[in-house]
Every structure is written in C-alpha cells, then in structure tokens.
Simulated scan of single mutants.
Amino acid sequence: MVTSTVVDASGVGPGGITRVLTEVVRCWPAGERMRIVAAPAGWQPPADTAAEVTVAGTQRDGRIGTIAEATRTLREVTGGDAGPGTRVLSLSPSLAVRGSRLPVTTIVHDLAFRLWPDGLSASVRQYRKLSYSTAIGRSERLLCVSARTRHDLLGLYGVPYEKTTVWHPGSDLAVTPGVLPGPVAAVHDRGGRYLVVPGHAAHKGVELAVEALADLPGHHLVVLTGGRPVDAFLRAAAASPAADRVIFLDRLSDAEYAATVAGAAAFVMPSHFEGYGLPAAEALRLGTPTVISPDPALLEATGGAAARMTTWSGAALVDALRQLTDRPPVTAAEPGGRSWRAATAHLHALLSGGAPAVAARL
C-alpha cells in the first residue's frame, strides 16, 4: 500500500495538466502523504483535499532553473529518509526525474512535439526530445492517457506494451458554473448562439471552426486561448467574412470556463492531433453537445457521445453540427469520460501495483 507519494510537477504548464495535478490532489485518499515538487507558480492544493499535502518548491527561474531545483529536491526527498512505501509520480516527462533515487512512474499525455510540431520553437522541440527520452529510460512504468498515446510510444520509441498502461483522466469539474465573461454574456443577452473551441495551441484546428462559421450565420465563435492566443488563428479570424462574430477570450477562471462551455450551443474540437481531448469530455459532462475531428484520441475520450467530423474541413464541421440536431441531448446519466474520483482511485491502485490496465468509467 502506498502511504507516501512524491509528485514531480516540473513538467506541468498551464492547461490540462495543471487540472490533472489539482484534481488528483483533491481526490487522493485521506490520510496519505503527498509532496509536490516544483508546483506551478501560484498553484495551491485545493482546500477540500483529504490527503496530507506539502509543496516542496515552485517553478521559478525559467525551465533551466526549475529543472535544476526539481532535480535537487527529488534527490533529497527520495533519499534514505523517504520511508518504505514511498513512490515517485511524474505528471509529465521531465529531465528532473534523473534526481530520483526511487522508481518513477511517468504520465505521458501526448507526443505532439513529434507528430504535430507546428508552432513549436526549435528549443522547445529539443527540450521535449531530451525530457521524453529521459523519462522513458528512467521510468519504471509509463501511464498513457489514451490507447492512442500508448500506440505512439510503441511506434516512435519502441516502448513495449508491458511497460505502458492506459490511464484515462477524469472529466467532471469541481466548480459550479459562474458568470459568463463579458463578451460572451453580451451575445447571450441578445439571444445569440455561440460555439466554443479550444485555441491555445496550433494543432487545435481553430482555422477550421473559423471557416465553418461563414456558413453558420446565426452563431458566434468563442475561442478559448488560455491567455496564449495563436497568431495563425488571429490572422484566420481577421481574414474571415465572419470576423465580427469571432471572440477570443483570455484566461478564464474555472467557474467562467464552466459557464462558457455549459451555455454554448455546441463545443467543437476540430483538432489535427490530440493525446486525449479532456475538454471534449468535460463539455459532455456539462451537457453540451460536442463535435470532434476524426482524431482517434478524441473518439476514445468521448466514447461515441460526440458527433464526429468525416474530414478535417470547415464543411465537415458544419455537417457534424447538423448531426447534433438528430441526437438526443447529453444527460448526466451519460457523461463524457469518468469522474476524477474514479480516475484518481485507478491511479492510486496503479502506483500500488494492484490495478487492471483500464479501470471502469464511473
């Protein structure tokens, strides 16, 4: 039985992996100890966690400083005083795991830097190449967030299936939807309808949603940038005949995010590539009709509950949106994905060595 878990968060950046950190800590078993190494700046353990959580340093001084400090901290906290039953969990491939004196389990979310490197600088690609190689070589076990990512590890790195396991994240949100952001509230108050699309990375396919918008005169398009707008998407929107109906939002609070997605006519993910597709599963959990691209990970994440585009094109997105009118509404009894409590219980069992490859969706 695992009684103490050291969590390496040095590879956690803004976005979905931060949510993984927060929800896993929130749902970790009562009374067990967790030590978070290199937590994202400003991150705090959720107040309702039942575990004994301590933060051993935060990310600072850029990537080099963060990795150096996390490596030293891991070496210290996994030394002779770590105690029996201590395990190390790295939430994303990181060079810092070289400092661990104990076996490491690493979560692998995707291999986008190899399969969809568009928009990534040469330095980022080189760092991820080194961090993934290090994590693969240093980890005792690799947890893949989808069967697609597990397959990619086999194909690109030759990692045998015996070393990998599929672990699906949760999809429920631990907040009540709050107030709509101003620009979205203005559309809503006029009786308008809007679509929501994630747009914080080049592979998200926002240009396809912009293309489709020209054939959807009754809708606005709300782009969630996470505070990181993509220049190519800004240019595509500016050049569109529907430019006045595209809204780019800055980073939202969890409550604003939930309100924006829950109030949408549809949530769309025309992504060119995904390792899993957590936002689509979250949208279904909120009861929002959802459209996905042909990407296999998105089909896995949504379990067939989303309308699927047949090709990567604006026309295919419009056709998929029309399919939604023939589908029964998503209900709480048929949510996307599984709960974070179920996902965390599965993760805990995997670290304890007593779980099946894929646990039930609850």
Score class of each variant (00 low, 15 high):
residue 167 W to Y: 09
residue 215 D to Q: 14
residue 38 A to W: 11
residue 338 R to F: 02
residue 287 G to W: 01
residue 9 A to V: 11
residue 8 D to Y: 00
residue 34 M to R: 09
residue 101 R to L: 11
residue 62 G to N: 09
residue 148 R to D: 06
residue 165 T to R: 15
residue 15 G to T: 00
residue 291 V to R: 14
residue 323 Q to R: 14
residue 244 D to P: 07
residue 278 L to N: 06
residue 170 G to Q: 11
residue 307 A to C: 07
residue 76 E to Q: 05
residue 351 L to T: 02
residue 74 L to K: 01
residue 321 L to V: 03
residue 21 L to D: 04
residue 58 T to D: 02
residue 66 T to S: 02
residue 104 V to I: 03
residue 181 P to E: 14
residue 145 V to G: 09
residue 296 P to C: 12
residue 223 V to H: 11
residue 228 R to A: 12
residue 239 A to Y: 04
residue 149 T to S: 12
residue 124 V to D: 13
residue 334 E to W: 14
residue 11 G to E: 04
residue 135 A to W: 02
residue 226 G to I: 01
residue 137 G to H: 13
residue 41 A to T: 15
residue 171 S to Y: 09
residue 278 L to Q: 15
residue 83 G to W: 01
residue 300 E to T: 14
residue 238 A to M: 10
residue 94 S to E: 01
residue 180 L to S: 05
residue 93 P to V: 03
residue 44 Q to H: 12
residue 314 G to E: 00
residue 198 P to V: 00
residue 264 A to Y: 10
residue 146 S to L: 09
residue 57 G to Q: 05
residue 71 T to I: 01
residue 8 D to A: 08
residue 322 R to N: 10
residue 46 P to Q: 03
residue 7 V to S: 00
residue 270 P to N: 03
residue 192 G to E: 04
residue 45 P to T: 05
residue 201 A to V: 15
residue 48 D to T: 07
residue 142 L to H: 01
residue 114 R to L: 13
residue 71 T to R: 10
residue 259 A to W: 08
residue 261 V to N: 02
residue 290 T to F: 05
residue 234 L to E: 14
residue 183 P to C: 08
residue 344 T to W: 11
residue 331 T to C: 08
residue 64 I to N: 01
residue 353 G to R: 08
residue 158 G to V: 09
residue 105 T to V: 13
residue 26 R to K: 10
residue 282 E to A: 06
residue 96 A to Y: 00
residue 256 E to D: 13
residue 85 G to K: 02
residue 130 L to R: 15
residue 314 G to Q: 01
residue 177 P to L: 05
residue 204 K to E: 13
residue 118 D to H: 11
residue 32 E to M: 10
residue 23 E to T: 02
residue 341 R to L: 12
residue 108 V to K: 00
residue 133 S to K: 14
residue 255 A to S: 15
residue 177 P to F: 15
residue 73 T to H: 06
residue 126 Q to T: 09
residue 319 D to F: 00
residue 72 R to Y: 04
residue 335 P to Q: 04
residue 185 A to V: 12
residue 228 R to W: 08
residue 172 D to T: 03
residue 319 D to N: 05
residue 65 G to M: 07
residue 150 R to H: 13
residue 105 T to I: 08
residue 291 V to K: 12
residue 32 E to C: 09
residue 23 E to R: 11
residue 96 A to P: 01
residue 45 P to E: 03
residue 277 G to C: 03
residue 226 G to C: 02
residue 153 L to G: 07
residue 102 L to Y: 06
residue 360 A to Y: 11
residue 104 V to C: 10
residue 300 E to I: 13
residue 49 T to S: 08
residue 198 P to S: 14
residue 15 G to N: 07
residue 134 T to N: 12
residue 41 A to W: 07
residue 306 A to P: 04
residue 194 Y to S: 00
residue 266 A to I: 02
residue 337 G to I: 07
residue 272 H to K: 06
residue 34 M to Y: 02
residue 129 K to E: 14
residue 336 G to R: 12
residue 289 P to Q: 07
residue 236 A to Y: 09
residue 235 R to I: 14
residue 145 V to M: 06
residue 212 A to R: 01
residue 236 A to S: 15
residue 43 W to V: 01
residue 348 H to Q: 10
residue 191 G to F: 03
residue 5 T to G: 05
residue 35 R to Y: 02
residue 261 V to S: 01
residue 288 T to A: 04
residue 326 D to R: 14
residue 76 E to N: 04
